[in-house]
Design a protein around this nucleic acid. Structure first.
Lengths: 203, 203
DNA sequence: TTCGTCATGTAATGGGTTACATGATTAC
DNA sequence: GTAATCATGTAACCCATTACATGACGAA
């Protein structure tokens, strides 16, 4: 998880550990918070694996900063992690991280991931419905309320995913979308740079 | 976390490990799934600490089941865990577990916990708003959509908590509610047994 | 008799956290 | 000069997971 996040950030530009954490806090802090105690060991691990490397910009680095940049095998690993990863990784917390780096994927891959996520949520919702029917009477009202709210949230997650899928499909129809699909995976989409496209759900 | 769950289930009745996991799956499976690899070691740890003890009902136990029941210090620990716990435990995943055992708390304690949770969510939402204002322009549309949706979900969490608080306050006004407040903490409320009270939000 | 499920357990591993230690640089 | 924040790192721990091993029992 942290590995994906670090590789994703380093794709943008070289950074040192402290800055990585700051960026992570700013972008994903709403969902996830990492501590320094994780960031430095992970960075070293990635370096041992050859996925990142030290990159000391002599003029930009007045202090003893350890600036890292992503390597080519790091780029490959990033794509592997975001699109496949551990097969069990479709649950909850890991998805936001993937989405945060969606701009590096081709629309087709995005749609594939979104639909996989959707299927997971739908299954979860179904399981909830089943256990509601089963438990209704002998369950206390707090647990029931909890389950109902959980299901509401999941339903709204699904609706949101549907909007994202629709936006991707719409983008595929436009000339830009077709160009976008032609670009190699791993390079950012123009759609995803500065101005959000009109088709992206604002809610 | 698992400790609270096990103690909470054992408050209801004595159970063995396998059954504990089944119950957990049925009641909280929507939010949380535990594996056997966690349950048995935790059970042994709780036994070492004297919070649970073996209870072999000679007739009801044909096999080599290890049936455990909660002890008095286990009951005390349960109350400690659910109402205070690690001070940092107000985040996300731990709250549903607390709520699942709310029937063992007095209305005043419930309200206290709900308001603490509410404050946490409100703060989180505020942080989200701040980072939205800060980041708007230089953030890609996927991350923005993620943040918006996350904030929507948090807002709906708050609304739900508000309903629960209102229901508790309403219950405090009724004669039953006053009786309820008089009972010692740790015994189940009649409100919370079989029939949900009219005041519990159904949504 | 074989399959599913009940039932208990351990070892290795994962993926982080907290707490601590250290020190440089910047802003007031 | 002193406080904040920038910057890196390590050791100990936490709370779970996966994978594996073992075996009893009931139903087809």
């Amino acid at each position: 998880m942290l590995e994906l996040a670090i590789l994703g950030l380093l794709k943008e530009r070289a950074m040192h550990g402290y800055e990585l954490r700051k960026q992570l806090g700013q972008r994903l802090g709403f969902f996830w918070r990492v501590s320094f105690g994780s960031i430095y060991p992970t960075l070293k691990k990635l370096e041992r694996q050859g996925l990142v490397e030290k990159f000391l910009a002599e003029e930009t680095t007045p202090r003893r900063k350890q600036v890292y940049r992503i390597t080519e095998s790091g780029e490959a690993e990033f794509l592997e992690l975001i699109s496949e990863g551990a097969s069990t990784a479709w649950e909850e917390d890991k998805f936001p991280l993937r989405l945060a780096f969606f701009r590096y994927l081709r629309p087709e891959s995005r749609i594939r991931l979104l639909e996989r996520r959707r299927a997971y949520l739908e299954e979860k919702l179904d399981e909830g419905r089943r256990s509601m029917r089963r438990a209704r009477r002998q369950t206390d009202p707090y647990t029931l309320s909890l389950m109902r709210h959980g299901m509401d949230v999941t339903a709204s997650d699904i609706a949101w995913i549907d909007e994202l899928i629709a936006a991707e499909r719409a983008a595929l129809e436009t000339p830009q979308g077709k160009l976008d699909s032609a670009r190699p995976e791993g390079t950012p989409s123009e759609l995803a740079s500065d101005q959000p496209p009109q088709t992206m759900p604002t809610k």
